[in-house]
Amino acid sequence: MEVTGGKDLISSLPDDILVRILSFLPVEFTIRTSILSTRWRHLWKHNLVIDFTMSTYRLLDSEDYSFVSRFLALHRAPKLQRFAICRSGCKGFVPEVELWVAFAATRDVQELEIIFYDVYFEVPLSLYAAKSIKSLYLSGVCFSSPPNFNGFFLLKDLSIGFSGIGDEVVEAIVSSCPILESLTLQRCSGLNKVKIASRRLKRLVFDETELGELLELEIEAPNLVCFKYQGSVVTFCLKHHCVAEVELLYRMFLRTDIGYEREFQEADFGYVKTLMDDLSCVKYVIFPRLIVGVY
């Protein structure tokens, strides 16, 4: 036996373990390992994870995205576990998004995360070709029309934030993800009367901030165990009353009949409680700084 433990083992770390270690490091660090030795020169190109969100590098504040394209052109792993990029302070549309998503889709990406905070990008059509996707997180997206696609058959975890998305788009996507377990809609606009119908859904988080835009939320999810809602007071319709954990965080403002907001008043608790009668399983409602029991 040649290897004897201790320091002698270290030079024998196989490439696949080294590549695995690289997958936990920021992209620019992985590239810099190319100058360690000739053996390391191309290791980073086999990383199964391409995650620009770990980058502390100032390039993520620059307007020039050519480094991402150059990086992708050199990458050699035939499959991708994860592709992630995050940007804020963007001044305009980034046409490269189309190429990134197509790249990830052709490499059977399992986790895709594209986060833009202050610009909407049109959802690239190549996204719908990403059949291996298990986890999808999009922010700053604009869905113009319901997608015409067969579905994400492996998608379990879907999160859409700060995006423009219509009622029918949400319904179309949810209904074409047969094993979806977790859905988060955070600060999306364009939602008025949403119906979430999903057999396998266990967790639904709805964070609505466009005041008063959402009027009705209908949920038909027999396996739902956790439902969290944050936003103004709306009408809920839960078709199946078996949710174990419900958390409602209402904002301090209520829409009134004539359409403007006023501050939340004590009398409103009674109103909320009538809404809650439909939710026989609700444990508690959280108001800012107040917790009201519902029975």
Binding site: S11, S23, P26, T33, L36, S37, R39, W40
Partner: peptide, 21 residues
């Protein structure tokens, strides 16, 4: 990964027993 991410190259070479060729 966490332990090596802030290290200079020379230290990373030492840890992985890499000789700069």
């Amino acid at each position: 990964a966490d332990s090596i991410k802030d290290l200079p190259h020379q230290d990373v070479r030492e840890i992985f027993g890499v000789e700069n060729d």
